[in-house]
Design a protein around this nucleic acid. Sequence first.
RNA 1: GGUGAGAUGGGUGAGUGGCUGAAACCAACAGUUUGCUAAACUGUCGUACGGGUAACUGUACCCCGGGUUCGAAUCCCGGUCUCACCGCCA
Length: 425
Amino acid sequence: MLQLSVIRQNPELVIARLQHKHLQQADSLVQGIIDADDQRKAFQAQLDQSLSEQNQLAREIGQLMKNGHLAEGEALKLKVAALKESSKELEQQKNTSEQLVQDLLVKLPNLPHASVPAGKTPEDNEVVFQVPTLPELSADAKPHWELTTEYGIIDFELGVKVTGAGFPVYKGQGAKLQRALINYFLDQNTAAGYLEVQPPILVNEDSGFGTGQLPDKEGQMYHATIDNLYLAPTAEVPVTNLYRDVILKESDFPVQNTAYTPCFRREAGSYGKDVRGLNRLHQFDKVEIVELAHPDNSYEVLERMRNHVAKLVESLELPYRVLRLCGGDMSFASALTYDFEVWSAAQGRWLEVSSVSNFESFQANRLKLRYKAADGKNYLAHTLNGSAMALPRIVAAMLENHQTPQGIRIPKALVPYTGFEYITK
RNA sequence: GGUGAGAUGGGUGAGUGGCUGAAACCAACAGUUUGCUAAACUGUCGUACGGGUAACUGUACCCCGGGUUCGAAUCCCGGUCUCACCGCCA
């Protein structure tokens, strides 16, 4: 959520940046917010005035009654009653305009950072890094969904029986590989300074709101309606919400958390080659990194996170590229996002395996996540997060890129975790 | 699931109708003292929205929402959550 003060101080700039993100009617939305807030202020001032008088009168009545001036006291009571009546109405009007401001405000996406490329579609994303050469696979190279069956490491059909499509069952070396990757990523992250946390995987409504999934994107989450809880679509939600309603000290920065969780996404409307095999699942494993940063250096933190993720991909010996997402492709809450994509050799396409974003104060404003500055005032912190990493597509790329006649080769860095060098039949 | 207790500022915890936005203590921060540390002393020490260059000042908030009253942290109703015990159980 954008800060009202920012919108009020610089509406033109806000409108221009929103248009960069291809928001329809940015100008009328912004103007509507300012108008509604003007109204709110006016009602608030009148209400405060009325309440102030009532408080004053109540004190006088107390004194009069104490001193036995009953008649005068009764007279003032009438006066208070009248004020009370009018303040009731004022309060309603204030609440209405306040609600209107809030409703409009949550509709606005974050402002894109100045470096975000213009553009609407994934084709407009800027490639900021790409490995110089893509590997050549032999003619009989297979896509990962054939390899998983061939090696008996992932059973998609079995998952369909137990739950439905998009809930695969990992078996044998496949299951072991999952466990190895999770441990490897967590170890790498903690070695880089991140504190490992295990958050709840079901989250409440307030948490969904805090990171921006609610109110508008509830369709992407599974909803346990009896208890009104949502299955986390990413550890970002529970981990970032650890810091909801928190006021940090400046010396607390940087706050670095990493968490492994399963992730659940409904992915309504997806179809075709996008959902083939491991490309897009309803349940998948992911290790996430979350950081809270001082506004002055959150972009340095973002670059540090980007470098960290790059090292992870490289250590798995996977061909990859890094994109700076364009305004139209960025998520609602992000100010700047780097996507990491690995090359799916057999499919001949790029698969997104990590998304590293700076949300600036957009989430912090919803979360009321602040820090106390040297001047004694509270300011919104910046939140950032990234996948480090999402497993299924990493696995897909590993299977396809590392297929050899003697089996699927496990990258050296991972062997201590798997305990085997090849996945074999 | 059953029964009972409770929810107050960073923490402990007082407050059962009227200068109480809230005692006291602890923690924290700043300063004095000091060779350093400690101790002692002094001061500061909730959040939000307004007004004012500022000093300052208005309003709201003692879990949430209603109600009673001239006046509510305090009384009443509804809800949520937490804790304890029992039951069940990885």
